[in-house]
């Protein structure tokens, strides 16, 4: 009888200790590795719908089957400006291979964006996030930030910071259907 009791007690203690330790470890771990993005690599990219600079409405899910190079940018941001010509160059090569660029401008006026587009001769669609809705949904911090989305609508990679032309090429190859 006593032996059984003692055994029971030991199990109880072991389980309780294990339980508490795992909570502690889990808390510590999740505190250290706090997720920066709400959308992380491997997730499905949340759908959204925005107007382009020309006033057409575009929805992300319409691009299922294609790779989407989703770039968040601003005209005032130097690194964004630097990578724009590379994106334009590679866009010409990859457009026919099923890669689309969606460049989301964050809360700027049409005039400024139009000037910028004219200056760099950009041919890919510029989406105007006028209320910051999509920027908020994707929790964008510093720009430029680029989400690489494959043909199934899954986020393959998230890149923060400026890209070289080689980078752009490499990434477009990555999401080519």
């Amino acid at each position: 009888m006593n032996k059984i009791n003692r055994k029971k007690r030991r199990y109880f203690r072991a389980i309780l200790l294990l339980f508490m330790c795992s909570i502690v470890l889990y808390t510590l771990f999740s505190n250290i590795s706090k997720d920066k993005y709400v959308v992380s690599e491997g997730d499905y990219a949340p759908n959204f719908s925005l107007e382009t600079l020309q006033g057409e409405r575009v929805e992300l899910k319409d691009y299922r089957g294609e790779g989407v190079f989703l770039n968040f940018w601003g005209t005032w941001c130097k690194p964004c400006e630097r990578e724009m010509p590379y994106m334009e160059e590679e866009y010409k090569n990859f457009k026919d291979q099923g890669v689309e660029i969606l460049a989301v401008n964050i809360e700027e006026s049409d005039l400024i964006v139009q000037n910028f587009v004219d200056r760099f001769n950009l041919s890919f669609p510029i989406l105007m996030d006028r209320d910051g809705e999509v920027t908020g949904k994707y929790k964008i911090g510093p720009i430029p930030t680029t989400f690489l989305i494959d043909k199934n609508g899954k986020v393959v990679k998230i890149i923060t910071g400026s890209m070289t032309q080689q980078d752009v090429k490499k990434y477009m190859n990555l999401i080519k259907p």
Partner: peptide
């Protein structure tokens, strides 16, 4: 200005 409220998943402005 009207803007989306962060943290609400685009639900509130």
């Amino acid at each position: 200005e009207r803007t989306v409220i962060p943290g609400t998943n685009g639900e509130y402005y």
